[in-house]
Design a protein around this nucleic acid. Structure first.
Length: 885
RNA sequence: AGGCGUGUAGCUCAGGGGGAGAGCGUUUGCUUGACUUGCAAAGGGUCGGGGGUUCAAAUCCCUCCACGCCUACCA
């Protein structure tokens, strides 16, 4: 660093260096035995198969901002990293690999296949963690977990057995969503609905004992063979006479009853509904209500089974549909066909059409668990932003039992065994050796595995060592906050709440922060197929991690999606560079042997002012983060650094730093303080650049920024006066700059200014900072006083009552200047009229709070004065024009 | 169909009962001893339409229009 910082910020080497530093020093290793209020976050475990996408980047950045900030607050922070085994997704990856070798999983057999998945996971799985690392996530790598590691597997078994013994897990025949391709059951929320174009066929069902008939409308004629009834609405007068009679099922000899149920929509189709309990969710419910049998006609491969007439057996459901339609037509039973656009369930993994399917599955009874989870919000767990509470309640209130078994191989195998001798079902944590009932050893384990979300639901306590009573568990559970996308509020968050409350009898986290989805710049969801993904690693390579992190943070406003484009990230790279150069400037002007001390106070208005602003920034940053207002935090820092520290403060102190004034040492001290503390405030969002700058600062005791505490708050004397004075000064500078550019005065031209101030205070401010005014407004000389004579041929302005004159004898364009003043005057006049009207309104004066009325009065007086003075300036200008003619 | 949400400058958005804001973009000017990834200045908005509450509405309420998401889905 001795040779100074490079001219522009080069993130690559800096990031590499500090990542290595933090890792080798184990900076982020949590120590449960140490003091400090616990603050724990568990990472939403990304899939082992995954690559980091921009949504992860947002998710991780926000968590990291919180963790780094909370360490600064003196909390004992633990952030646990890990990955999810992602049942179907991972199995698919390995199956695809096998396919290349011309094999299927059945060729290998279950055991070998699972070995193969583990091999894959050791080799290639978890590459995402390396990407998490590059994002700068301050996780405790020594505590990395995987949802299938030994400890978590124990936890899964333990919870399963407990729930079973509590009567909350049962095995049952049920209609579930079945994916023919993945060969597994899917939970309701693993099914995505998409609009499909189809047909609505009207089919005539003849009555068994008369010549009358009913016309039934269906979009799935192939399920006809499974029909167990025809339903009509009880109030539908067209059909009441048929209720209780029977119809002959077309293409078969079977007779089925006509039943009445108010589920039937009298407006839709023919208002006659064929009821197929085995192949439709609603029909299943309907069938249960009316005691209908369940007849499956499609098997789990999507083929027609032997319950169908023999011509149809073995056909695919699609081929069967065609044949049924053709045969009905031939028999004259097809009344009509209409186009129908309806939504059809698709597998969220492979997008194939989901088939409702009856089978034996394992379920968790949700009602008792949901009740507790509902009550805990918001009393014990608060959701941010609060509007998601409603969605959460709504889901819990309408919850259905959770189908947790999956017919795949990769996952936690259900800890249940059946005795082939006596049929006894044994559910146990440890693999049983003998039947508990008949003592034989012929036990066969349940072949299904658990839904991936089952293990995820235990994540907050299983990662802390449960069921062992670890000190981590004692210290960090319940965790502080869960940060995740709202899209998995049901999949994951609600289930963690339920299981946490049931198993640990405590909520898993005190806060839930649901962040937005990252979309592309047009608001579209990013997806590989659309080709609009922004790859975070590519962005890191191009612009640096800090720029990416800052962008994500500044856009993370509550309750709105983020529309992101590369241009924005590039824009915040400019911010990195600005910070870098500000620091570079500071370091060039701070002696390497500077003895920094807290005791040095401000010596100039600029010093006092920047300290005031810094105090405000500290307060606002803390306040923003306590409410998860990440964007406010980031924006506050941006404005302070760019618009206050760089644009004004650094410019204001240049003369002091370049000179040999007695104030120089004081100012250097203040500069050091402001820069150092600003870096600490920014560090949670931009850890790398701040750390690099920090380590270059003179007189620094602790090199590792991540170990620093938040700067203490200081009381600044007269802070309102200081800010007011500074604002006055800034407005004067701006007024002169404005005159120069608006009148098109060439930059080389030397200008002087005369300022007629209204009082001693204004005079003092300007006198004390006269040389700064000359510098910033690019003047050669300025005269300040309460009795300054007006100068006619000049550009002029009114600032808080002070009149500014910039003499422009010979170069002034009177018309331009006159127009400029007029524009200003009109604006003020408009405001003045509005305010006067308001004050003339008696109701306003009596009803509005006193302070408001007072404020308005003051304002109108100010405007009055300004109007007056602007008028004077115009008059003088007109006089000068006359004289010049 | 129900629920939630959004509509503010050309774009992306913040704000939210009493003076319309930011960033980017645009225009103009600038080798001002950190930064052209920069500096200075400017232009730009009946805060979606209508109605109501209020002394006062971009902000609260109602309604309409447009858009988005979620949940449930009609055979």
């Amino acid at each position: 660093m001795e040779e100074g910082l490079s001219k522009s910020y080069e993130p690559k080497e800096v990031e590499k260096k500090w990542l290595a530093y933090w890792e080798s020093n184990e900076t982020f290793k949590a120590e449960p035995a140490k003091s400090g209020e616990p603050y724990a976050i568990v990472i939403p475990p990304p899939n082992v198969t995954g690559v980091l996408h921009i949504g992860h980047a947002l998710n991780l950045t926000l968590q990291d901002v919180l963790c780094r900030f909370q360490r600064q607050q003196g909390k004992n922070v633990l952030w646990i990293p890990g990955t999810d085994h992602a049942g179907i997704a991972t199995q698919n990856v390995v199956e695809r690999q096998l396919k290349v070798e011309g094999k299927t999983r059945d060729d290998l057999g279950r055991e070998k296949f699972i070995e193969r998945v583990w091999e894959w996971r050791e080799e290639k799985g978890g590459a995402i963690l390396e990407q998490v690392r590059r994002l700068g996530a301050s996780v405790d790598w020594s505590r990395e977990r995987f949802t299938m590691d030994e400890g978590l597997t124990n936890a899964v078994r333990e919870v399963f057995v407990r729930l079973y013994n509590d009567g909350l897990i049962y095995k049952g025949k049920y209609i579930i969503n079945w994916c023919n391709r993945c060969h597994t059951a899917l939970a309701d929320d693993e099914v995505e609905h998409a609009p499909h174009k189809g047909n609505l066929w009207n089919i005539r069902y003849n009555l068994a004992d008369s010549d009358e008939s009913l016309v039934v409308a269906t979009s799935r004629p192939e399920t006809l063979f499974g029909d167990m009834a025809v339903a009509v609405h009880p109030d539908d007068e067209r059909y009441t006479k048929f209720i209780g009679k029977k119809v002959k099922l077309p293409l078969t000899d079977r007779e089925i009853p006509i039943i009445a149920d108010s589920y039937v929509d009298m407006e839709f189709g023919t208002a006659c509904l064929k009821v197929t309990p085995a192949h439709d969710m609603n029909d299943w419910e309907l069938g249960k209500r009316h005691g209908l049998d369940v007849l499956q006609v499609i098997n789990d491969q999507g083929l027609m089974n032997d319950e169908c007439p023999k011509d149809y057996i073995g056909l695919t459901k699609e081929a069967c549909r065609d044949k049924v339609v053709a045969d009905l037509k031939e028999q004259g039973l097809l009344v009509g066909v209409e186009d129908l656009e309806h939504s059809v369930g698709e597998c969220y993994r492979c997008k194939s059409v989901v088939e409702p399917h009856v089978s034996i599955q394992w379920f968790v009874s949700m009602k008792p668990l949901a009740e507790k989870a509902r009550k805990a919000v918001p009393a014990e767990t608060k959701i941010f932003p609060v509007q998601w509470e409603k969605t959460y309640y709504n889901w819990l209130d309408n919850i259905r039992d959770w189908c947790i078994s999956r017919q795949i191989w990769w996952g936690h195998r259900i800890p249940a065994w059946e005795c082939t001798e006596c049929g006894e079902l044994i559910v146990a944590v440890d693999t049983p050796t003998a039947c508990t009932k008949c003592s034989c050893s012929k036990l066969v384990q349940e072949s299904d595995v658990l839904d991936t979300w089952f293990s995820s639901a235990l994540w907050p306590f299983s990662t802390l060592g449960w069921p062992e009573q670890t000190e981590e568990l004692a210290k960090y559970y319940p965790t502080a906050v869960l940060v995740t996308g709202f899209d998995i509020l049901f999949f994951w968050v609600a289930r963690m709440m339920m299981l946490g409350l049931h198993v640990k009898e405590q909520v898993p986290f005190h806060h839930v922060y649901l962040h937005a989805l990252v979309r592309d710049e047009h608001g579209k969801k990013m997806s590989k197929s659309t080709g609009n993904v922004i790859d975070p690693i590519e962005m890191i390579d191009k612009y640096g991690t800090d720029a990416l992190r800052f962008t994500l943070t500044v856009f993370a406003a509550m309750g709105r999606d983020i529309k992101l484009s590369e241009k924005r990230i590039e824009g915040y790279r400019f911010f990195s560079n600005k910070i870098w150069n500000a620091a570079r400037f500071a370091l060039m002007n701070l002696p390497a042997d500077l003895e920094y001390t807290e005791k040095v106070g401000p010596s100039t208005l600029a010093d006092s002012w920047i300290l005031c602003r810094l105090e405000l920034l500290k307060k606002e940053t803390k306040e923003a983060l306590s409410q998860y207002r990440f964007n406010d935090m980031a924006q506050g820092l941006y404005k302070f650094i760019w618009n206050e520290f760089c644009d004004w403060y650094l410019e204001l102190i240049k003369p002091v730093l370049y000179g040999e004034d007695s104030k120089k040492e004081q100012t250097q001290n203040i500069l050091h303080r402001v820069l150092a503390e600003t870096m600490i405030l920014l560090h949670p969002i931009m850890p790398f650049i701040t750390q690099e700058i920090w380590s270059a600062l003179p007189s620094i005791a602790e090199r590792d920024m991540a170990k620093l505490l938040y700067p203490t708050e200081r009381l600044i004397k007269n802070n309102e006066k200081v800010c007011g004075d500074m604002q006055y000064f800034q407005e004067i500078v701006s007024a002169v700059r404005n005159i120069r550019t608006e009148l098109g005065i060439e930059p080389a031209r030397k200008l002087t200014a005369f300022i007629r101030v209204t009082n001693k205070e204004q005079e003092d401010i300007l006198q004390e900072n006269k040389h700064l005014l000359i510098n910033l407004a690019r003047l050669t000389e300025v005269s300040i006083g309460q009795n300054i004579e007006a100068i006619k041929a000049s550009g002029s302005a009114v600032v808080q009552g002070s009149q500014v004159f910039v003499p422009l004898e010979g170069v002034i364009n009177f018309d331009t200047e006159l127009a400029r003043l007029e524009k200003d005057r009109l604006k003020i006049e408009k405001e003045h009229t509005m305010l006067s009207k308001k004050l003339a309104n008696a109701e306003f004066v009596t009803n509005a709070p006193k302070q408001v009325v007072e404020k308005e009065k003051e304002k109108v007086a100010e405007l009055d004065e300004k109007l007056n003075k602007l008028g004077q300036l115009q008059t003088r200008l007109l006089e000068a024009m006359q004289e010049n003619k």
